[in-house]
Amino acid sequence: MEQSPEVGDRITDKSAPPDDDTVCDWIGPKAFGHWAELRNWIEAYYPAVFAPEWLYRGKKRGWSLRYKKSRAFCTFLPEYRLFSVEVVLGGAEREKFEARRYGWRPQLVKLYDEARAYPDGKWLKVGISSAADRRDVTELLSLKRPPPRSPG
């Protein structure tokens, strides 16, 4: 008998990367709206820069959607009834973050302060449940790699 998924569980069926319907069913329609908005934002602000790639990260971590050029840009994490984005801030990005420290939302600063520092940077896992959370992520991504042009 299979156990029903719990909030935060990952998509672990290794047979094939999930499609949009699977992701929507897993994270829920509201979270999927944020998923689609962020994907559209990346496509609009970074046209033809990234080819998103599904990665299977093992039985515990499941599938994730990575945006990468030469360096990782961000990774979308579809979790049961949740959607999070992982952003790694290297040394230069951490300096920029600190320079704007008091301009960020307090929740993001707390997340940043609590994130463990690794040799390649701080790994922030930002839960997305509102337009403000999405804006935090788009600002972090713009800090990491300024958009080549704005859409229009």
Score class of each variant (00 low, 15 high):
L38V: 08
C24R: 08
N40Q: 11
R71C: 03
G91Q: 14
L108M: 13
D133Q: 06
P146G: 14
P106H: 10
Y45N: 04
D20L: 01
E93M: 08
G90Q: 13
G90V: 06
L143T: 12
K30P: 01
G58L: 04
P147M: 00
F83N: 01
G8N: 12
E139M: 09
K96A: 15
K68G: 00
S142K: 10
G121N: 03
M1V: 10
I128K: 00
D9T: 06
G28E: 03
V109E: 01
A31T: 02
W54V: 04
P151N: 10
G152H: 13
S150M: 08
S130K: 02
R57D: 06
Q3A: 14
R94Y: 07
W63N: 08
S15L: 13
F73P: 06
G28T: 03
Y45V: 00
D19K: 01
L65R: 11
W104R: 05
R134F: 12
G62V: 11
G152C: 13
T12C: 13
W63P: 06
S4C: 06
R94H: 11
V109M: 01
I42Y: 00
S150D: 09
L108F: 07
I128Q: 00
R94I: 10
Y118V: 02
D113K: 12
N40T: 12
G127C: 09
A117E: 13
E43M: 07
R39T: 04
K122C: 01
E53R: 13
R100T: 10
P47V: 06
D9P: 03
D13Y: 12
S15W: 10
V7Y: 10
D136S: 14
A117P: 04
